[in-house]
Design a protein around this nucleic acid. Structure first.
Lengths: 123, 123
DNA sequence: ACCCTATTCAACTAGTTGGTTGACAAACCG
DNA sequence: CGGTTTGTCAACCAACTAGTTGAATAGGGT
């Protein structure tokens, strides 16, 4: 079991490449072999094989054996982890704005506002 | 205005680095200068300045001038774009499973199932 | 004017990435 | 057995990354 921080490193890095994003998109329509994944990409099969490996190491795809084929399957788990991370901080930012708006509004009505920052920690 | 595909490239690449994720996390607690962002990281200010630049070029943070300081501000927009992308395909995968489950169930009850794949395109 | 603080620029380094070509391995098909 | 399909391994290359040190710029305080 890889540490979640490392999973985020690999997951985000994996999706930073448009070829790999397109592979993920393709896999939502069903499992596929390396050859099938390579077809629409003007690129050697070896290059696609490497991309698939990156996706596999990130946990975004898994593979089974099937004769000489090795079909790829999309795993939702790491996607969920990534959504979780982003949403946590996006939401926190929105929440902060909500509070800030409230403060500003109060300042406007009371005419003596001094805003303060709070301290904390997060990974 | 950068193309959304390029924004995804930069956005995901930006969040693939744990230092930058921690900077984003810090910024949800309020705007901060490069110096403030550098404090908790055992790393030179110059290195943090570079990370901030990457975040800025991805659109994840914006900056204003304030005397000789250049405070960083977290922007939610690209985060929303990234969530949108991930969720689209994660959801598609789940949907596919739901359909597959239905097919398998029908196969189990009718004892003569032959599953078929559908074709389509996505970026 | 002078210094201090905050930030960036420039040059360098070690390691990683994304692609190539060519050779190899594994499993099926006759 | 020999050939074909499917995929990987190895070596190489150009470009990029994440960090360093050292020098330069920009704005404010006194």
């Amino acid at each position: 079991m890889t540490a979640p921080d490392e999973q985020l490193n690999r997951g985000f890095a994996a999706l930073a490449d448009p070829t790999r994003r397109s592979i993920v998109a393709r896999l939502t329509r069903g499992d596929a072999t390396v050859g099938e994944l390579a077809e629409p990409h003007d690129m050697t099969v070896q290059a696609i094989s490497k991309h698939v490996r990156v996706l596999e190491e990130s946990g975004l795809v898994s593979r089974r054996r099937e004769a000489q084929r090795r079909p790829c399957h999309l795993e939702a788990e790491v996607l969920d982890l990534m959504i979780g991370w982003i949403e946590r901080y996006r939401r926190a930012a929105e929440e902060r704005f909500r509070r800030l708006d409230a403060v500003l509004e109060q300042m406007a009505t009371t005419e003596n506002g001094v805003a303060q920052e709070q301290k904390g920690a997060a990974s």
